[in-house]
Design a protein around this nucleic acid. Structure first.
Lengths: 238, 238
DNA sequence: TGTAATATGTCACCGACTGACATAGATTAC
DNA sequence: GTAATCTATGTCAGTCGGTGACATATTACA
């Protein structure tokens, strides 16, 4: 990696850290791009060459998450119920959080506190999620052998999974400075979501136009499999 | 209603209609507030006294929807499973759409086409949903007798319900100019979502810390009840 | 060292949005 | 009907986020 690349990476992080600190000190809305640029001795114009906008500073983490989910998804067996695959993908994200460097962990905690102070950011966050969701829908639809554009079941399942992640993230904490607690909460939320879904239902062979079909599903050994899945939080599958 | 009120209502609708038409003609982003204001002979400053911003024009419908959902929710029996209550609330919104005046129906169809052309608006829409969601969470949590802030199950269920609505709204149509088809799609999506959830599970008596509890639930007569619920789309309960 | 690639800064600009103030119109009291 | 009041609107100036264009400084490579 050349000098150029390294310097770029360094200033990028400098901007990010300066911004997060400013957001914590004086709030997201009250902090201007000029301030951020000024505090890292950078022209405001340059700021926009590193980040597409102020939101990018605070929403950038999400791209990484989706990437991890996509990788995990591709590694899961095709005959697995879609929501189970997505649960694994979500857990992979939490594992990545655990394995992050101390610097990234600190950034994440700051981010979390910033989100707490600015509910509007949660909205922005889900907006970004909704726009990125399509990649996941395509993947899920492909596994189920259906058309990603017209199939609503795939969209629903993905939307549920992403909602789960959001609820897990924004849920109130006792100690906001503990990354492990955040991770634990997220995993609990994922389990909660799994508990809400029909465990015996593989939507691949469910025909919504005929309401009787799902009832014929047998609550077979899937339950046992789900239990083992629930407990292997430390297992890597990506 | 005095002359003042009437005039205000009239200009408000004039602004809205002019804006929707402009959005359709030249796109949402390419349309400026000055243009909208100009086309209704209004000062740009006045525009912002009627609408909080450009998004308000396109996201305003949502407030009405949440209001209907809240009213419906309050009319549902307390012992009903939360997602069932929310399904009814969602259906109430679709019924309201059906019963809307021809003018409102036309506006809604325009809106739908605008959303199709500008995927970013879908993001903005869910952002607004996420910010409004809290009222619904509080209602659901109150019915379940739990703390709205700490209880994740209530949040999850509400998030799922709102996701359902979004998926139903944005799903591709054969005829974008037919409000009935949109309504039909939404109801199908609601049914789909209901099929994804455990029908026999009332989360009120499910303890997530003990994974064995939900398995002990019996798939009893609830299933039958759900079927009748699925078909009374034309029944008013608000 | 010289040259091409690229990162940065400067400047001018647009569009969304807001506060302050003046004015024109509608409402009410008398 | 007129005066006094309330409020809706317009004007103006200004802030902030964001972008294109162009010049310049820095790095990479031969």
């Amino acid at each position: 990696m050349g000098l150029r690349e390294r310097k770029k990476a360094r200033t990028r992080l400098a901007i990010l850290d300066a911004a997060l600190d400013l957001f914590l000190e004086q709030g997201y809305d009250s902090t201007t791009v000029d301030q951020i640029a000024g505090s890292v001795e950078i022209s405001p114009r340059t700021f926009f060459r590193y980040f597409t906008g102020k939101d990018h500073l605070v929403l950038g983490f999400h791209d990484q998450g989706v990437e991890i989910m996509m990788d995990t998804l591709r590694g899961r067996p095709t005959d697995e119920p879609p929501f189970t695959s997505l649960s694994h993908a979500l857990r992979a994200v939490t594992r990545d959080m655990e394995d992050s460097t101390p610097e990234d962990a600190a950034r994440f905690l700051k981010l979390r506190r910033i989100f707490d102070d600015n509910p509007r950011l949660v909205g922005l966050s889900v907006a970004k999620v909704a726009e990125t969701e399509h990649a996941l829908v395509r993947e899920i639809a492909a596994r189920r052998g259906v058309d990603p554009d017209s199939d609503r079941l795939s969209r629903l399942i993905v939307a549920f999974a992403m909602s789960t992640m959001r609820v897990g993230f924004e849920c109130p904490l006792h100690d906001v400075a503990d990354l492990n607690e955040i991770v634990r909460r997220m995993r609990e939320t994922i389990e909660l979501a799994e508990g809400l879904m029909r465990p015996d239902l593989n939507p691949a062979d469910w025909n919504p136009t005929d309401p009787n079909t799902p009832d014929s599903n047998t609550p077979d050994s899937n339950t046992a499999e789900r239990d083992t899945v629930d407990r292997d939080g430390s297992h890597r599958d990506a």
